[in-house]
């Protein structure tokens, strides 16, 4: 019996899919499932005894003041960074889309922070944010008396890291928006101009609605990135002072790799994943990506 072409295509399709699927399963799906299972055990890597504790880890999580603080910090971080980042990168893209002199230079300059190692930028900013650092120097020259270490002050450490994150990733999202902007036909703006729209009105009434699919993408990616923020916390503040900058992913790291409590850490990771999932689902339902 000869294999009909259609079936043959199917076989090839599955063959080609098999290898990446295998990789994904081993390195992504399996660890996720395993972490989920581990969260129900008191799992210490070095102790052979790993008793089943059911929801014990989860109950302990919500009684742990550091975890509650971590949730609070993560939410504040996300609520602060996502809108600012989205708007800033849209605004930058809008400017970059005009015919300005030195456009190519500015585009590159805005994008470079995004491709620089986050550890490198964090280390540089530790110095900038220090008491005798660049930020205080600039503020003092502008007449603002500022003599604090931004990273050891509990009320400024999280905003400082948030600003760093905005600076780092806005360039990346600017590029996404730029692509979206260039898909808007120039004639739409011209029609708006003739209708009497100022630059500002054009921005709000034409550009922002038309660029909605990109906005959706940027917000989702930004949300996910913010919920998972780790590098900067690890390098710059180690979650301090007094857990003022401990985020949920940092909490996961601490409990799993420093305190040897994998089950507990896994449980906190599961909570984080559920949080991200819920937020994205809500966004999809109430703020769908279609522009029109």
């Amino acid at each position: 019996m000869t294999i009909k072409p259609k079936n043959e295509q199917k076989i090839w399709a599955y063959t080609f899919l098999a290898f990446p699927l295998l990789l994904l399963s081993i390195f992504v799906f399996f660890p996720i499932a395993f972490a989920f299972i581990v969260s129900f055990f008191d799992w210490n890597l070095l102790i052979p005894d790993k008793p089943f504790v059911g929801l014990g880890n989860y109950i302990e999580l919500f009684k742990d003041p550091v975890f509650v603080k971590a949730i609070k910090n993560t939410v504040i971080y996300t609520l602060g960074v996502v809108p600012v980042q989205t708007f800033l990168s849209l605004f930058l893209a809008f400017i970059m889309n005009q015919k300005l002199r030195g456009r190519a230079f500015f585009r590159t300059a805005f994008y470079i922070p995004a491709i620089t190692s986050s550890v490198v930028t964090s280390i540089i900013f530790v110095w900038i944010y220090s008491k005798p650092g660049l930020l205080n120097y600039l503020l003092s020259s502008a007449g603002v008396d500022s003599n604090i270490d931004w990273l050891t002050n509990p009320s400024t450490v999280l905003p400082a890291i948030m600003m760093l994150n905005v600076w780092t990733t806005s360039g990346y999202f600017m590029v996404s928006f730029l692509a979206g902007l260039q898909n808007i036909p120039a004639s739409l703006y011209e029609a708006a101009r003739i209708d009497g729209a100022s630059q500002w009105k054009q921005f709000w009434k034409i550009m922002v609605p038309m660029v909605r699919p990109v906005t959706y993408f940027v917000v989702v990616m930004s949300l996910i990135g913010c919920f998972q923020v780790f590098d900067q916390i690890f390098v710059m503040s180690s979650g301090g002072p007094d857990n003022a900058s401990t985020t949920m992913s940092y909490f996961v790291y601490q409990n799993s790799f420093k305190y040897f409590r994998f089950g507990f850490g896994a449980a906190s990771a599961v909570v984080l994943a559920l949080l991200i999932f819920t937020v994205t689902a809500v966004q999809k339902k109430y703020f769908p990506p279609e522009a029109y």
């Binding site: 004639s187 029609a191 708006a192 003739i194 609605p209 909605r212 522009a291």
Partner: peptide, 12 residues
């Protein structure tokens, strides 16, 4: 007032 070749209607 102007009528464009590709209509330039605001799609949204």
């Amino acid at each position: 007032a102007m009528v464009f070749q590709n209509y330039a209607l605001y799609p949204h």
